[in-house]
Design a protein around this nucleic acid. Sequence first.
DNA 1: TTTCTAGTTTAGAATTGTTTTAAACTATTG
DNA 2: CAATAGTTTAAAACAATTCTAAACTAGAAA
Lengths: 154, 154
Amino acid sequence: MSDNQTDKTVEMVSETHASKRPYADALLRLKQVGLRPTRQRMALAKLLFDGGDQHITAEDLHGMARKATVKVSLATVYNTLHQFKESGLLREVVVGPGRSYFDTNTHAHHHFYVEPAGELVDIPVDSVELSRLPSPPDGTVMDRVDVIIRVTQA
Amino acid sequence: MSDNQTDKTVEMVSETHASKRPYADALLRLKQVGLRPTRQRMALAKLLFDGGDQHITAEDLHGMARKATVKVSLATVYNTLHQFKESGLLREVVVGPGRSYFDTNTHAHHHFYVEPAGELVDIPVDSVELSRLPSPPDGTVMDRVDVIIRVTQA
DNA sequence: TTTCTAGTTTAGAATTGTTTTAAACTATTG
DNA sequence: CAATAGTTTAAAACAATTCTAAACTAGAAA
Ligand SMILES: [Mn+2]
Ligand SMILES: [Mn+2]
Ligand SMILES: [Zn+2]
Ligand SMILES: [Zn+2]
């Protein structure tokens, strides 16, 4: 519901005001989670959320920023990604040692992991049916279930 | 079947010959995958496979070796873990950025990941029912499905 | 046995990905 | 405008892993 609302706003902005107010959506998101809309965060938010679902590494995002001539340090990229993750604007998906991606799709969903390309592909949550799950170990409570289907390029 | 056979051998060895021939099982495993039974590999194999299923990091294993007064470098521990993994003697399970475990249970199975303890608990494959899976992206073929249930200490 | 050789181990350097530090900077509030 | 809390950054530090190149060793051949 809150997600739905956000999505609607995004659509509106990108469809009707994007050229006039290209930072409206980024600004909104930052306001919603209580982070100051600094130049760097605005630019990173725009890069992250302006182009559909993405699975991106910190280095990738830093590279995109540089290509877009946004002056931002790698440390800030890391800071920002973690703040966005803590705020629920992003999820982190870990697929291999030293391979972690930030995912702009924060809805419940699963992943194909294509090796050796190292590419992540979303799987809608309802196209996987987990009809039986074991109960968690004593003294623990279930947080979430991640399904990663590892596939290889034929 | 091949697994079954191995398991039977392990049992036999540990039950009837362990005290007399404590390296018989390790030797067998190395022979089976065509790796020379060096002092270091034998010792690591023994540490890994002699005590039920384990989820262990490279540092952990190196620590265990040191405690058992086995002289082996960390580089060799890494080499060996990767060789064992490539040979199918071990699996690698990645649960978080910079958190990867080597798993002595090579049968198909899933995991609870207990946070923040960082502990892995096996889930038998048949206690999870994956009744529907999407087809892999074009040009790829499914390798395996990993289910990680993240749980938190209550 | 004694070579011979390919495979193995190792210390140490290097690399990768990420975090920390502490000083400079900036968005917001009064 | 201050004043201040939050933010950014270069640089150093860190953790995990890999690489390098030289020394060592298991197994095969002589
Ligand atoms: Mn590895
Ligand atoms: Mn992280
Ligand atoms: Zn995703
Ligand atoms: Zn396991």
